[in-house]
């Protein structure tokens, strides 16, 4: 039966080759890769940038560059890693012109009551992520939002596994510090 995802079982490398070869099914191949990774890449963009509008721009540019790289015959062996690296480099380019980082010490949470909906907690996590510096935030997002191993993260960032472990731990500690009043109020699951 014709399916909306005819390449559901195809390997990434094959899909990349199909895009590169500009075959009649290149759009479908791109669709499949998009289906597989768009969510993860957008999650990365959103949680690293913290701004939906900018995250969309970053996301779009990432996938467009990925497509062009495929067409140009770039050797892409790990698609998700390539996409994340592309998004990361684009983000770093943006940061060259702007200084977005805000020290944790300068961050003040909004007034809150002792009762919080879970949705609010999610928003607070996103807000807490924003105040982390980029290396900590990135390591945390790649570890907890992308579910990457430390070795995979190291492949993307170029940092050592030990450094990354420290960053993830440090990021989580800062987030816990920021969210302590909220977390402590939540019942044990």
């Amino acid at each position: 039966m014709a399916t909306k995802r005819p390449y559901l079982n195809s390997e990434d490398a094959k899909l990349v080759r199909m895009i590169r070869d500009a075959s009649a099914s290149s759009e479908r191949a791109f669709n499949e890769l998009n289906e597989r990774y768009s969510h993860r890449i957008y999650a990365y963009c959103l949680r690293v940038l913290g701004n939906e509008s900018e995250a969309q721009d970053l996301f779009q540019e990432t996938f467009i560059r990925f497509y062009k790289a495929c067409c140009n015959g770039t050797d892409i062996r790990n698609v998700v890693s390539y996409l994340l690296k592309t998004a990361r480099n684009l983000y770093l380019n943006i940061q060259r012109d702007r200084k977005l980082n805000v020290p944790v010490e300068d961050y003040h949470l909004v007034e809150h009551s002792n009762r919080y909906e879970k949705e609010e907690l999610l928003e607070l996590i996103a807000a807490a992520l924003e105040v982390l510096n980029f290396p900590l935030r990135e390591a945390f997002v790649l570890r907890h939002y992308q579910q990457l191993s430390y070795r995979e993260i190291a492949d993307i960032t170029g940092d050592s596994v030990d450094v990354l472990k420290f960053r993830v731990w440090s990021a989580k500690e800062k987030i816990k510090t920021i969210l302590a009043p909220y977390l402590n109020d939540l019942p044990v699951l």
Binding site: L121, H144, K176, L179, A180, L183, N184, V188, L189
Partner: peptide, 10 residues
Amino acid sequence: NAELQLQNAI
């Protein structure tokens, strides 16, 4: 418990 809540929230 706080860590668990954070993990779940993430």
